[in-house]
Amino acid sequence: MKQLVILSGKGGTGKTSLTAALAHLAHDGPCGVPLALVDADVDAPNLDLVLAPTRLEEHDFVGGDTARIDSDGCDACGLCLEVCRFEAIRQTGRHFEVDPMACEGCGACFHQCPAQAIRMQPRVVGRWFRSESRYGPLIHAALFPAGENSGKLVTLVRQQARCLALDRECPGILIDGPPGIGCPVISAATGADLALVVTEPTAAGMHDLERILGTTQHFAIPTWVVLNKADLVPEVSAQVMDTCQRKGIEIVGRIPFDEAVTQAMVRGEPVTAFDRQAPSSLAILQIWQRIVAGLFGGSIDTRVERLDRRERA
């Protein structure tokens, strides 16, 4: 079973739009590979907006613990305030209170409180879901705004997807990753067989490309690059290609800037389903064919094999 993660470094380069299109091609396209789908951007999950999933299961997600001061037991010594390194204790006169959004859940105050007036309580900070989408099973989640522990939630959805893929005998898992390079990205990417970094020909895109490539290299994840909105600024596209060549990283696709992508999004569909002949759709199909060849052993499905698999799933 192979895991493919879509990353970017910079936000807004087109990860989710590409993931949705790949999911569509994997399911309906000429080279079918049954995939389990994961939206690992738990802060701002968007994949479900273009996959029309039906929710089958919903679960609470508990992040870490949060401290809570029992004002009856508290004798206002202020030690918790002294000890807290995260500015999570607020004092008004003799009243001490924990700011749950700032609380890191470390328990230092709980362990140090001489009156034992503090309790550590688990907090539900999000939800995760198992759904069935147009293009296959989808595991996704939503962290409540200002939630914490996104890395843990990402790890959880990936594990759920692994179990699901094993159960359904899917040869692959497709993961829509978050932007950035920190904990949620690391949790989304480690253990993946291939990372597809979606970048754009902009100064900011190039800067962040170096950072995400450094990250996948640090975690020894094989990486390919896709240059999105490739025709927007040819001079910068050339720089991106130079950078990748210097680093020995392959650019497996160049997707032209295409209004069809947004039009498809407004319709709630991947661009390849919205308009198969759109310039971006054609470019994405080529990318998908490279992925099939490189990651799934290159066998291009016959229609019969694909139908059989659909029946079994």
């Binding site: 990936r158 480690t190 253990g191 975690f219 020894a220």
Partner: peptide
């Protein structure tokens, strides 16, 4: 063991 942060 290779780079993974978590057992994924």
């Amino acid at each position: 063991r290779q780079g993974s942060k978590s057992g994924n």
